[in-house]
Protein backbone atom coordinates (compact mmCIF):
# COMPACT_ATOMS: atom_id res chain seq x y z
CA UNK A 1 0.00 0.00 0.00
CA UNK A 2 1.51 3.27 -1.07
CA UNK A 3 1.23 6.52 0.82
CA UNK A 4 -1.21 7.71 -1.84
CA UNK A 5 -3.53 4.73 -1.28
CA UNK A 6 -3.44 5.31 2.44
CA UNK A 7 -4.25 8.95 1.94
CA UNK A 8 -7.16 8.08 -0.36
CA UNK A 9 -8.45 5.64 2.23
CA UNK A 10 -8.28 8.25 4.98
CA UNK A 11 -10.03 10.83 2.84
CA UNK A 12 -12.80 8.35 2.00
CA UNK A 13 -13.13 7.43 5.68
CA UNK A 14 -13.39 11.04 6.80
CA UNK A 15 -15.86 11.83 4.04
CA UNK A 16 -18.11 9.05 5.26
CA UNK A 17 -18.20 10.58 8.77
CA UNK A 18 -20.12 13.54 10.04
CA UNK A 19 -17.36 15.69 11.55
CA UNK A 20 -19.70 18.28 13.08
CA UNK A 21 -21.19 15.57 15.28
CA UNK A 22 -18.03 13.65 16.07
CA UNK A 23 -15.84 16.58 17.12
CA UNK A 24 -18.14 17.87 19.92
CA UNK A 25 -18.49 14.30 21.21
CA UNK A 26 -14.71 13.99 21.32
CA UNK A 27 -14.43 17.33 23.13
CA UNK A 28 -16.97 16.29 25.76
CA UNK A 29 -15.19 12.97 26.38
CA UNK A 30 -11.83 14.75 26.75
CA UNK A 31 -13.56 17.21 29.09
CA UNK A 32 -14.75 14.33 31.29
CA UNK A 33 -11.16 13.13 31.47
CA UNK A 34 -9.82 16.54 32.45
CA UNK A 35 -12.32 17.17 35.25
CA UNK A 36 -11.80 13.58 36.48
CA UNK A 37 -15.49 12.83 36.26
CA UNK A 38 -16.97 10.11 38.43
CA UNK A 39 -17.99 6.72 37.11
CA UNK A 40 -21.66 7.66 36.83
CA UNK A 41 -20.84 10.59 34.56
CA UNK A 42 -18.43 8.44 32.55
CA UNK A 43 -20.94 5.69 31.95
CA UNK A 44 -23.61 8.18 30.93
CA UNK A 45 -21.16 10.00 28.67
CA UNK A 46 -20.05 6.80 26.95
CA UNK A 47 -23.60 5.58 26.37
CA UNK A 48 -24.60 8.93 24.89
CA UNK A 49 -21.39 9.26 22.86
CA UNK A 50 -21.84 5.83 21.26
CA UNK A 51 -25.49 6.48 20.57
CA UNK A 52 -24.93 9.89 18.98
CA UNK A 53 -22.02 8.60 16.92
CA UNK A 54 -24.01 5.69 15.54
CA UNK A 55 -27.16 7.73 15.03
CA UNK A 56 -25.74 10.93 13.55
CA UNK A 57 -22.03 10.36 13.03
CA UNK A 58 -22.22 8.70 9.61
CA UNK A 59 -23.17 10.35 6.35
CA UNK A 60 -25.14 7.26 5.33
CA UNK A 61 -27.49 6.47 8.20
CA UNK A 62 -27.37 3.11 9.98
CA UNK A 63 -30.74 1.29 9.89
CA UNK A 64 -32.76 1.73 13.08
CA UNK A 65 -32.88 -2.02 13.74
CA UNK A 66 -29.09 -2.30 13.57
CA UNK A 67 -28.74 0.76 15.79
CA UNK A 68 -30.91 -0.74 18.53
CA UNK A 69 -28.92 -3.97 18.32
CA UNK A 70 -25.64 -2.06 18.78
CA UNK A 71 -27.05 -0.03 21.66
CA UNK A 72 -28.22 -3.21 23.36
CA UNK A 73 -24.66 -4.52 23.23
CA UNK A 74 -23.29 -1.22 24.53
CA UNK A 75 -25.68 -1.16 27.51
CA UNK A 76 -24.84 -4.73 28.39
CA UNK A 77 -21.14 -3.92 28.25
CA UNK A 78 -21.49 -0.87 30.45
CA UNK A 79 -23.65 -2.77 32.92
CA UNK A 80 -21.12 -5.57 33.11
CA UNK A 81 -18.37 -3.06 33.74
CA UNK A 82 -20.32 -1.27 36.45
CA UNK A 83 -21.27 -4.38 38.42
CA UNK A 84 -17.93 -6.12 37.94
CA UNK A 85 -16.69 -4.93 41.36
CA UNK A 86 -18.23 -3.59 44.54
CA UNK A 87 -16.17 -0.40 44.27
CA UNK A 88 -17.35 0.34 40.79
CA UNK A 89 -20.93 -0.31 41.76
CA UNK A 90 -20.72 2.05 44.71
CA UNK A 91 -19.00 4.69 42.65
CA UNK A 92 -21.69 4.40 40.00
CA UNK A 93 -24.73 4.24 42.26
CA UNK A 94 -23.72 6.79 44.87
CA UNK A 95 -24.74 9.88 42.87
CA UNK A 96 -28.12 8.30 42.18
CA UNK A 97 -28.67 7.36 45.80
CA UNK A 98 -27.67 10.79 47.00
CA UNK A 99 -30.19 12.31 44.64
CA UNK A 100 -32.92 10.18 46.14
CA UNK A 101 -31.96 10.52 49.78
CA UNK A 102 -30.34 13.90 50.47
CA UNK A 103 -32.58 16.80 51.33
CA UNK A 104 -30.68 19.38 49.33
CA UNK A 105 -31.37 17.51 46.10
CA UNK A 106 -35.09 17.34 46.70
CA UNK A 107 -36.07 20.00 44.06
CA UNK A 108 -33.97 18.15 41.49
CA UNK A 109 -35.59 14.86 42.50
CA UNK A 110 -39.05 16.34 42.00
CA UNK A 111 -37.96 17.62 38.61
CA UNK A 112 -36.81 14.13 37.57
CA UNK A 113 -39.96 12.64 39.03
CA UNK A 114 -42.03 14.85 36.73
CA UNK A 115 -39.83 14.92 33.63
CA UNK A 116 -39.46 11.17 33.09
CA UNK A 117 -43.22 10.38 32.98
CA UNK A 118 -43.75 13.37 30.68
CA UNK A 119 -41.01 12.16 28.35
CA UNK A 120 -42.58 8.69 28.29
CA UNK A 121 -45.98 10.24 27.42
CA UNK A 122 -44.45 12.35 24.67
CA UNK A 123 -42.79 9.31 23.19
CA UNK A 124 -46.08 7.45 23.04
CA UNK A 125 -47.73 10.48 21.47
CA UNK A 126 -45.05 10.76 18.79
CA UNK A 127 -45.18 7.06 17.96
CA UNK A 128 -48.94 7.33 17.49
CA UNK A 129 -48.92 10.45 15.34
CA UNK A 130 -45.85 9.85 13.19
CA UNK A 131 -46.67 8.84 9.61
CA UNK A 132 -47.43 5.16 9.58
CA UNK A 133 -45.07 2.95 7.64
CA UNK A 134 -45.98 -0.05 5.50
CA UNK A 135 -44.61 -3.42 6.59
CA UNK A 136 -40.91 -3.59 5.91
CA UNK A 137 -39.47 -6.53 4.05
CA UNK A 138 -35.70 -6.74 4.40
CA UNK A 139 -34.73 -8.36 1.15
CA UNK A 140 -31.50 -10.23 0.61
CA UNK A 141 -30.08 -8.49 -2.44
CA UNK A 142 -27.92 -11.39 -3.58
CA UNK A 143 -29.54 -14.55 -2.21
CA UNK A 144 -27.60 -17.80 -2.23
CA UNK A 145 -28.10 -19.91 -5.34
CA UNK A 146 -29.66 -23.37 -5.01
CA UNK A 147 -27.22 -26.14 -4.17
CA UNK A 148 -29.07 -28.52 -6.47
CA UNK A 149 -28.24 -28.30 -10.19
CA UNK A 150 -30.63 -26.14 -12.17
CA UNK A 151 -32.22 -27.07 -15.48
CA UNK A 152 -32.20 -24.54 -18.31
CA UNK A 153 -33.50 -25.59 -21.74
CA UNK A 154 -33.22 -29.26 -20.78
CA UNK A 155 -29.57 -28.92 -19.76
CA UNK A 156 -28.39 -29.38 -16.20
CA UNK A 157 -26.02 -26.86 -14.65
CA UNK A 158 -24.26 -27.39 -11.35
CA UNK A 159 -23.79 -23.83 -10.14
CA UNK A 160 -20.84 -24.76 -7.95
CA UNK A 161 -18.82 -26.06 -10.85
CA UNK A 162 -20.18 -24.44 -13.98
CA UNK A 163 -17.93 -22.19 -16.04
CA UNK A 164 -18.76 -19.94 -18.95
CA UNK A 165 -18.01 -22.19 -21.93
CA UNK A 166 -16.84 -19.22 -23.99
CA UNK A 167 -14.59 -17.65 -21.36
CA UNK A 168 -11.60 -19.76 -22.41
CA UNK A 169 -11.79 -18.28 -25.92
CA UNK A 170 -10.37 -15.12 -24.41
CA UNK A 171 -7.03 -16.99 -24.32
CA UNK A 172 -7.37 -19.38 -27.20
CA UNK A 173 -9.26 -17.53 -29.90
CA UNK A 174 -9.75 -13.83 -29.35
CA UNK A 175 -11.66 -13.34 -32.56
CA UNK A 176 -14.25 -15.96 -31.61
CA UNK A 177 -14.39 -14.42 -28.15
CA UNK A 178 -15.15 -11.00 -29.60
CA UNK A 179 -17.95 -12.53 -31.69
CA UNK A 180 -19.55 -13.82 -28.51
CA UNK A 181 -19.11 -10.49 -26.73
CA UNK A 182 -20.65 -8.72 -29.72
CA UNK A 183 -23.60 -11.11 -29.65
CA UNK A 184 -23.94 -10.46 -25.93
CA UNK A 185 -24.04 -6.75 -26.67
CA UNK A 186 -26.90 -7.29 -29.10
CA UNK A 187 -28.77 -9.35 -26.49
CA UNK A 188 -28.23 -6.65 -23.86
CA UNK A 189 -29.50 -3.79 -26.00
CA UNK A 190 -32.50 -5.75 -27.18
CA UNK A 191 -33.57 -6.95 -23.76
CA UNK A 192 -31.78 -5.58 -20.73
CA UNK A 193 -31.20 -1.88 -21.21
CA UNK A 194 -34.81 -0.86 -20.59
CA UNK A 195 -34.11 -1.35 -16.90
CA UNK A 196 -30.33 -1.68 -16.43
CA UNK A 197 -29.65 1.34 -18.64
CA UNK A 198 -27.61 2.22 -21.72
CA UNK A 199 -24.56 2.67 -19.55
CA UNK A 200 -25.32 -0.17 -17.10
CA UNK A 201 -25.90 2.19 -14.22
CA UNK A 202 -29.28 0.60 -13.45
CA UNK A 203 -31.07 3.75 -14.60
CA UNK A 204 -32.91 2.58 -17.72
CA UNK A 205 -36.20 3.84 -19.09
CA UNK A 206 -38.32 1.77 -16.68
CA UNK A 207 -36.05 1.85 -13.63
CA UNK A 208 -38.10 4.57 -11.92
CA UNK A 209 -41.12 2.25 -11.78
CA UNK A 210 -39.33 -0.67 -10.18
CA UNK A 211 -38.82 -1.70 -6.59
CA UNK A 212 -36.33 -3.34 -6.02
CA UNK A 213 -34.33 -1.17 -8.40
CA UNK A 214 -32.33 -2.74 -11.23
CA UNK A 215 -28.72 -3.66 -10.47
CA UNK A 216 -26.02 -1.16 -11.37
CA UNK A 217 -23.39 -3.34 -13.05
CA UNK A 218 -20.80 -0.57 -13.00
CA UNK A 219 -20.85 -0.79 -9.21
CA UNK A 220 -17.79 -2.86 -8.29
CA UNK A 221 -19.83 -4.51 -5.54
CA UNK A 222 -22.06 -6.36 -7.99
CA UNK A 223 -20.93 -8.64 -10.81
CA UNK A 224 -17.25 -8.52 -9.81
CA UNK A 225 -18.18 -10.30 -6.59
CA UNK A 226 -19.70 -13.28 -8.36
CA UNK A 227 -18.74 -16.26 -10.41
CA UNK A 228 -20.28 -16.43 -13.84
CA UNK A 229 -22.41 -19.37 -12.73
CA UNK A 230 -24.22 -17.12 -10.25
CA UNK A 231 -25.05 -14.65 -13.01
CA UNK A 232 -26.19 -17.53 -15.20
CA UNK A 233 -28.63 -18.63 -12.50
CA UNK A 234 -29.91 -15.10 -11.81
CA UNK A 235 -30.42 -14.43 -15.52
CA UNK A 236 -31.92 -17.78 -16.51
CA UNK A 237 -34.30 -18.03 -13.55
CA UNK A 238 -34.78 -14.32 -12.89
CA UNK A 239 -36.76 -12.86 -9.99
CA UNK A 240 -39.23 -15.76 -9.77
CA UNK A 241 -36.32 -18.21 -9.38
CA UNK A 242 -35.04 -16.62 -6.19
CA UNK A 243 -35.59 -18.12 -2.76
CA UNK A 244 -38.09 -16.28 -0.53
CA UNK A 245 -35.47 -14.11 1.17
CA UNK A 246 -34.85 -12.45 -2.20
CA UNK A 247 -38.49 -11.41 -2.55
CA UNK A 248 -39.26 -13.26 -5.81
CA UNK A 249 -42.79 -11.81 -5.93
CA UNK A 250 -41.66 -8.24 -6.42
CA UNK A 251 -38.48 -8.55 -8.49
CA UNK A 252 -39.07 -7.48 -12.10
CA UNK A 253 -36.09 -9.48 -13.34
CA UNK A 254 -37.60 -11.83 -15.94
CA UNK A 255 -36.73 -15.51 -16.10
CA UNK A 256 -34.70 -15.06 -19.26
CA UNK A 257 -34.85 -18.72 -20.24
CA UNK A 258 -38.25 -17.75 -21.63
CA UNK A 259 -36.59 -15.45 -24.15
CA UNK A 260 -32.92 -16.40 -24.51
CA UNK A 261 -30.97 -19.49 -25.43
CA UNK A 262 -28.26 -20.87 -23.16
CA UNK A 263 -25.60 -19.50 -25.50
CA UNK A 264 -27.17 -16.04 -25.50
CA UNK A 265 -27.13 -15.98 -21.70
CA UNK A 266 -23.41 -16.89 -21.59
CA UNK A 267 -22.74 -14.28 -24.28
CA UNK A 268 -24.48 -11.50 -22.43
CA UNK A 269 -22.53 -12.41 -19.30
CA UNK A 270 -19.28 -12.04 -21.28
CA UNK A 271 -20.53 -8.68 -22.48
CA UNK A 272 -21.41 -7.43 -18.98
CA UNK A 273 -17.85 -8.01 -17.78
CA UNK A 274 -16.34 -6.72 -20.99
CA UNK A 275 -18.30 -3.46 -21.00
CA UNK A 276 -17.74 -2.69 -17.33
CA UNK A 277 -14.11 -3.79 -17.52
CA UNK A 278 -14.54 -6.11 -14.57
CA UNK A 279 -13.55 -9.73 -14.01
CA UNK A 280 -15.76 -12.48 -12.62
CA UNK A 281 -14.72 -14.08 -9.37
CA UNK A 282 -12.82 -17.25 -10.17
CA UNK A 283 -13.99 -20.67 -9.09
CA UNK A 284 -12.31 -21.54 -5.81
CA UNK A 285 -9.80 -24.34 -6.03
CA UNK A 286 -10.25 -26.83 -3.25
CA UNK A 287 -7.32 -28.16 -1.25
CA UNK A 288 -4.91 -25.32 -1.92
Amino acid sequence: MTFHDLWQFLVALIESLNIYVLLPILVVLIGCRIVKAGLFVWVTAWALAVYLTLRYGFVIAIPASVLSLYMGIVFLTLLTYVVSSRERWISFSRPLLRLMVEKKYQPLLVLVLVTLPLAAGARVYLSMTLPIQPPLFTRTVHPAPPSEPITVHDQEFDLNAVVNPFRELEESDLEQFQTHVENGRRVYYQNCFYCHGDDMLGDGLFAHGLNPIPTNFRDTGTIAMFQEGFLFWRIAKGGPGMPDEGGPWESAMPAWEKFLSVEEIWDVILFLYDYTEQRPRELEEHGE
Binding site: P117, L118, G121, A122, R123, V124, Y125
Partner: peptide, 12 residues
Protein backbone atom coordinates in the same frame (compact mmCIF):
# COMPACT_ATOMS: atom_id res chain seq x y z
CA UNK B 1 -49.99 8.46 26.96
CA UNK B 2 -51.43 8.60 30.45
CA UNK B 3 -50.80 4.91 30.96
CA UNK B 4 -47.13 5.22 29.97
CA UNK B 5 -46.60 8.31 32.13
CA UNK B 6 -48.28 6.77 35.20
CA UNK B 7 -46.34 3.53 34.83
CA UNK B 8 -43.04 5.40 34.82
CA UNK B 9 -44.16 7.59 37.71
CA UNK B 10 -45.20 4.58 39.74
CA UNK B 11 -41.86 2.85 39.22
CA UNK B 12 -40.05 6.02 40.26
Amino acid sequence: MTRAALTIFGIE
